[in-house]
Write a protein that binds this DNA or RNA. Sequence first.
DNA 1: TATGAATGAGGCTTCATTCAT
DNA 2: TATGAATGAAGCCTCATTCAT
Lengths: 211, 211, 211, 211
Amino acid sequence: MRKLDPARHDQKRQEILSAARRCFERSGLKGASIAHICKEAGISPGHLYHYFKSKDAIVATLSEAWLDNISRRFEQLPIEEGGVVASLVEEISQLVPSGPNARSQLVFEMLAESTRNAGMAKLVQAHSRRLRSILANVLRQGQQRGAIDPALDPETTATIMIAMIDGLKALPLRDPEADRRAVADMLQQTLAAMLKRDRAEKTGEISGRRR
Amino acid sequence: MRKLDPARHDQKRQEILSAARRCFERSGLKGASIAHICKEAGISPGHLYHYFKSKDAIVATLSEAWLDNISRRFEQLPIEEGGVVASLVEEISQLVPSGPNARSQLVFEMLAESTRNAGMAKLVQAHSRRLRSILANVLRQGQQRGAIDPALDPETTATIMIAMIDGLKALPLRDPEADRRAVADMLQQTLAAMLKRDRAEKTGEISGRRR
Amino acid sequence: MRKLDPARHDQKRQEILSAARRCFERSGLKGASIAHICKEAGISPGHLYHYFKSKDAIVATLSEAWLDNISRRFEQLPIEEGGVVASLVEEISQLVPSGPNARSQLVFEMLAESTRNAGMAKLVQAHSRRLRSILANVLRQGQQRGAIDPALDPETTATIMIAMIDGLKALPLRDPEADRRAVADMLQQTLAAMLKRDRAEKTGEISGRRR
Amino acid sequence: MRKLDPARHDQKRQEILSAARRCFERSGLKGASIAHICKEAGISPGHLYHYFKSKDAIVATLSEAWLDNISRRFEQLPIEEGGVVASLVEEISQLVPSGPNARSQLVFEMLAESTRNAGMAKLVQAHSRRLRSILANVLRQGQQRGAIDPALDPETTATIMIAMIDGLKALPLRDPEADRRAVADMLQQTLAAMLKRDRAEKTGEISGRRR
DNA sequence: TATGAATGAGGCTTCATTCAT
DNA sequence: TATGAATGAAGCCTCATTCAT
């Protein structure tokens, strides 16, 4: 009965979430147990349920925070004059994970979980919409500035960029020894080529255009 | 009376694998229990262990078969005159999954599992090497025929293509309503642009070149 | 509200151990299941694991306590003037078990288990060393007082005494109808003769002497 | 439908028993499974049940054979003139086991099992009676020849000797590093002193005498 | 005689969650 | 707010045994 300080409550929540994240990264969404999380957080199992009503709630909260964080990074993309392509490309390139990145695997688990868990599906799809919207906006602004091929459909292009981002997360799992520098460089080129103004003139593409 | 048909044994194994696959697709690698699989296969829990020594063995066998199947599809790519790019591009485009494709999610679970399970890691990495090698070979042949930019490093290019393949699997989970046709078309263009012979002349790329 | 009595925890542990002991005595180390123990202790299977991390841990704890108890009994042997032989002999005689002594059988199971279980082997051997050391000390003091043949090697003699103790535990299993009184009496004589001061003069023994 | 040769049948039985013995020595009476035994014997589980109606039957048969073998060894004790004591003592001394004698542990398991298993109890007790009878007979003959103290009760003496035999089997489990030579020597002396003709004159024993 | 497919109960252990304090 | 006692279902796996061939 010390303090009912709501700020304190929130801080504890964050601590638990942080412990949970470490556990999930270590053992997976199903592999990490409430007991593990409690030990990591230094609290008792009973106490944890004062902050979260179920394990699923923890997973959901954490997933939301995680996805939100990704979105925010793209939201803060500088869209300066002439640099739209460059900064976008740069941002994606930096995603080429370094090391047996424990964080990326969680996204794969979220994606898989979204197949069976309606709540997770909602979360994942909302995030995807938001992310696509952010990227599409950046693309649109680039098109207005003439830096990006105006024939591209921003939504479709954004969708493909997201696919690339996802796929790159598998890289360190598929090939821990990969030359990430080479991949990053080539990725930059590919993206640049894809977005490039004059690309349209060179290929007789049929679709992917603004509808 | 002697040999009770070793083929019979193998067939039962396949039946169990098939049942397991359905369960895994439905509930995930961890979510599907031995009991579920046995019920689906119509056998008793004890009996399953005449065919597989552990759940992990089932997962491994299934994963291997699954990954092997993917590799084989790419191995059989027709590399006819002038169609290297086209057939490769076509093949990848067809991967854009249709419907809440339960199969793709398993790949994500395998990737995540490979973080914690040495056996799975070995499997995933071997598959990745093989797939990259197959794709790189196709690319090399295309380069010899002059259909593909000779400045591209086949291995790096293959790595990026695999990332795209992976990323596309997330598409129906991220956006079940996506216009797959549009995505497939744009993807084709992007790939074509990436591989195109004269691409190099147009962009001042720095790396990703043949080492 | 803080500490919910660590003594309470310990008491419960003891209760569980006690229930486990009864089960082991009834059904043997392997024959008694966790379910049996839980039922006997009046707790749920899951709860048992708050107190012991495995069945083996229960067995080990119980074995240790059991062996420890035996050692302590010998440690407390009164070594008064002139009574060394008598009290030692008396103590051993009392070991001739009475009734289908369920406790003794457990020692046999521990001994057998020590063949396959490294932890049990360690326990058994440590106990044996301790017990031998205790007995050897008593013997040495007896030798200093002139009550025990100084030519005897205390360690070897102790080893043989332990063998006798072990062997006597089999008596009620081998012959539930045995005249224990007669056996105890004769045992006393045999031990007395073995330890007796002037024994050496009567037999042309070759070894077993102080090294 | 080849041969119903009963000799062949018996040989197979022996092979299975032999395999079972190895398994039991390795893993214990409960630890060794029918599957293990079948693998060791190179036969199928179903086939085993043509030779033995249950695992218990195998255990019983094996135990009987084992105990029988011990009895036979003592039955064949040479009772030559003047050597009764010597040969008896020698025989027992040789029992001091050498090495982590896997065989002895089984006797302990049989003894423990006899507490819960009526069949085993019968077996063990019958064996004990027989062994005691054999030893008592040897002792009686020694008494007739004047080599053994006539005041000793042969049955009680035999009982104590059996206890010693049992106890010695624990020696290598209790102390794998023990100096077996010293133990054997001292044991010889102790037994000799116990049986010796003139022993009675030296100690004022009260019991253990012929009733 | 011989196989190995098949069973289902039961082994130990872990789990998410609730409750009394 | 905080603990940890307590639950019981469910997890994976092994077992002795039986049956069809």
